[in-house]
């Protein structure tokens, strides 16, 4: 509105009004809002409303079919004081996130770097190949990997024993379950991140590399002194994305199995079980909100770290 020039000479009030109402700018503005409104409306219905409603039911004891009973902060209180399973699920989530994200991003960076090399033939094929896992059904992925990670009849343990090593009990130990789930997550998302990195790489000017080559820098030095610094914003983006995604791992542990000690139980899976197998929707809503805060805190830490790195 501030950029509408309202000249003082135009003192006639109704004229002013007329202009405000019917000027081209104003109607542009209106249609602008109209054009973007579908997003906000859908976001309001499917984003904001459920969010607020979840907050509302987190203060209730509610099994969906019966009546809601107001319990105040009881759900939160129980989560903090008397729910070892919840804290276990948080620990599992972070552990799986750590095990999957860090190797995944490093691998994605290396793959992107290789895909960007001039000597590589058939680039489109490789790019497609690396992205394929991401569009594969997660259920199919989990079933195939579950079979591979079988303790007694699985392919991976078979290979391990060929080398004379002890087979690993994938479903029966923290280490095994976390590694198996992380591998599934990694396999699915490494290509996605590699493609994003590749886009970033292609925006780095060739001149920099040429200058470096003339100065006698080898490929390794180019990677560390040109590529990675130039990719910083994109790396930060992928870290943030993986953090948010990693906190919400669900289908993989659901289909792989969480193990007797619940060593594969992630927060979202716990939430789902509370709601749909124990019908404790209020409790599940409280978990959802705690998870929301955890993700926010974690993302903020990420942003702060990223700022530090940027300014350094």
């Amino acid at each position: 509105m501030s950029n509408v020039p309202l000249s003082t000479e135009n003192s006639l009030k109704n004229r002013k009004k007329f202009r405000r109402k019917y000027s081209q700018k104003a109607s542009d503005r209106k249609s602008g809002y109209l054009f973007i409104s579908p997003f906000f409306i859908l976001f309001g219905i499917f984003g904001v409303f459920p969010l607020l409603f979840t907050a509302y039911i987190s203060f209730h004891r509610w099994n969906v079919l019966g009546t809601k009973e107001w319990v105040g902060f009881r759900n939160y209180q129980l989560l903090f004081t008397d729910d070892p399973l919840f804290w276990k699920s948080i620990g599992n989530t972070f552990s799986i996130w750590f095990l999957s994200t860090i190797p995944q991003l490093i691998a994605a960076l290396i793959i992107a770097f290789l895909l960007n090399q001039a000597f590589l033939k058939g680039k489109a094929l490789f790019r497609l190949g690396i992205f394929m896992p991401n569009v594969t059904s997660v259920v199919a992925v989990a079933i195939v990997f579950s079979a591979m990670f079988g303790t007694q009849y699985g392919l991976i343990n078979y290979v391990i024993t060929l080398f004379g090593l002890e087979p690993i009990h994938w479903r029966g130990s923290y280490f095994g379950t976390h590694v198996a789930i992380s591998v599934m997550v990694m396999w699915r998302w490494v290509g996605y991140n590699a493609i994003i990195y590749l886009a970033g790489l292609q925006s780095i000017s060739k001149d920099l590399y040429e200058a470096a080559t003339i100065d006698g820098a080898n490929k390794m030095q180019q990677l560390f002194y040109i590529t990675i610094p130039m990719l910083k914003p994109i790396i930060i983006f992928t870290v943030l994305q993986s953090t948010i995604g990693g906190m919400q791992i669900f289908a993989e542990p659901l289909l792989f199995g969480v193990g007797g000690n619940n060593q594969g139980l992630t927060v979202t899976l716990y939430l789902y079980e509370e709601a749909f197998s124990r019908f404790a929707f209020g409790y599940a809503a409280a978990i959802a909100w705690l998870l929301f805060f955890i993700i926010i805190i974690f993302s903020l830490i990420n942003v702060l770290l990223a700022r530090k790195i940027k300014s350094a």
Binding site: H169, R171, G172, S173, G260, N261, F279
Partner: peptide, 23 residues
């Protein structure tokens, strides 16, 4: 009771930890 399923899961998990040598 409505909690029978919940308890079944807990008992199954407990026996799994025994089978896997976790407890």
């Amino acid at each position: 009771s409505p909690d029978t399923g919940t308890i079944n899961t807990i008992m199954g998990d407990a026996l799994t930890t025994v089978a896997d040598g976790q407890a």
